[in-house]
Amino acid sequence: MLRRKARRAQEDDHGDPLDAAQERRVRAVLALGGVPQTDLPDGVQQVRLRLLERAAKGYEAPRDVSAWAAVVASNLAMDWHRAQRRQERIGERLASLRQLEHPSGEDSSVLSLAVAQGLDELPDAQRQVLVLRFYADLPVRSIAQELGVPEGTVKSRLHTAVRALRARLHEDEVV
């Protein structure tokens, strides 16, 4: 039974509970949450560990491993902030990246930086739901259930966060 459940949680042939796409998604959620680059591998390992622990305890594998992993990663980012009392300024990190390919043209980097800097300014709780909603593409209801908060709270945080980012974008005349 345990082996069967563990196997269900393991999507690839190498026994890794996260496939490459899921790992990449976890890394992105952690990074968007402000976890520094150097700590991303640890964060990914934490997510793997929790997934394996679930299987070891006999729990059913998450129905949607990607969504589950994104929520766990976002919570890890929140915990990381609380423990470390600092976060990586992703606007600066993004600026240091050499390439950000985008078919729409050269203005995309300006836009990305504006968004990244806007993210830096958001309270952690708002950033968390924003990332889960628009990066991980989770419905509001799922976010509320996973985080254990009312839907209205999720909506309120999203509304405030998106409004702030819109204001920043338009103030900067980026769009």
């Binding site: 998604r25 968007l32 993004l94 990246l97 950000l100 968004v115 628009f134 990066y135």
Partner: peptide, 24 residues
């Protein structure tokens, strides 16, 4: 339109940040 743009940008930023850096 703005939300779609934000979604797209978060995707791009997340993917870019998920990459490792060379010159660091």
């Amino acid at each position: 339109a703005d939300v779609a743009l934000l979604r797209e940008q978060l995707g791009m930023i997340g993917d870019a940040l998920a990459e490792e850096q060379a010159l660091e």
